[in-house]
Design a binder for these strands. Structure first.
Lengths: 142, 142
DNA sequence: CAAAACAATATTGTGCGCAATATAATTTTA
DNA sequence: TAAAATTATATTGCGCACAATATTGTTTTG
């Protein structure tokens, strides 16, 4: 059964590569004292001042089961604040602290460093993003 | 800082896609009662009769911290056996049980089912394969 | 307006993933 | 050949992921 051989798997390389990338980033993120998923949350918050847990989850495709404890760890590191909205008390608003905002300067060079190291073309990035969108579109409707 | 915007991230789509794949596979693997990482171990063992923990780890890029408990769970499900080698007592040899081998027939159709469902074209498979080979070749050498 | 439906976040439980360390067996080497 | 180095697996501890469920607050509806 040729289709079950590991070398013919198309999804396994993505799975393995994803973990390699997380490790690659971890080396660079060590000095910021954040993990890769925490770094992704910082990316969202550097771009959008105030975000609810839901809004972060939609952008990163993560649910509250992952985000709630992750955000609490970032709050403990004083990178962000978690505040119940007064307008709607179901909502928790996430805001960066001064410390969290300042990490942006240190982090700015990381993507280009990794981009250079790995050497991906913009065509490959576009292809990958289109492919990701296709899978997500399928999965959210079913 | 344009390079820190989420939409310009290179590695985030790979990270998101990897999780997406695991979820897609999970739906199909439910009837086999195995997880995606456990399915990858099955792929290795369907292809290579007897494997040590090390050999599986080299093929899947996983270490004993991940594999030992995972293999114990698969042993508990009676999919495989874990036996200390008599020749070298440091080594644990993994062998499929009859039950583990028989899952191959049920699993054979899964990859093509997923491609069909999501509507992945052969062009996309080729692009994706070229892309992952490129990045993975880079990442494993350094 | 009270009950039902809905929405946002939290909690629980399970299974990875991996760094760091431990343990035990084997091989190398002084 | 005894000590040192190496190898193979196991253990520990922490941080995701995610399904399932609970909790609390808001909106809808009969």
């Amino acid at each position: 059964m040729e289709e079950l051989k590991l070398k013919n798997q198309i999804c396994f390389p993505i799975y393995a590569l994803s973990r390699e990338i997380t490790q690659l980033y971890s080396k660079h993120l060590g000095e910021l004292d954040v993990t890769y998923p925490q770094y992704l949350v910082l990316l969202v918050l550097w771009e959008h001042a105030t975000q609810t847990v839901n809004q972060i989850g939609e952008k990163l495709f993560l649910d509250s089961g992952t985000l709630t404890p992750l955000l609490k760890r970032m709050e403990a590191k004083e990178l962000l604040t978690r505040t119940r909205s007064t307008a709607d008390e179901r909502v928790v608003e996430i805001n960066l602290t001064e410390k969290g905002m300042n990490l942006k300067h240190t982090a700015a060079c990381i993507p280009s460093q990794i981009f250079d190291e790995v050497g991906i073309t913009s065509e490959e990035v576009d292809m990958l993003r289109a492919f990701t969108n296709k899978l997500f579109a399928y999965n959210t409707k079913k």
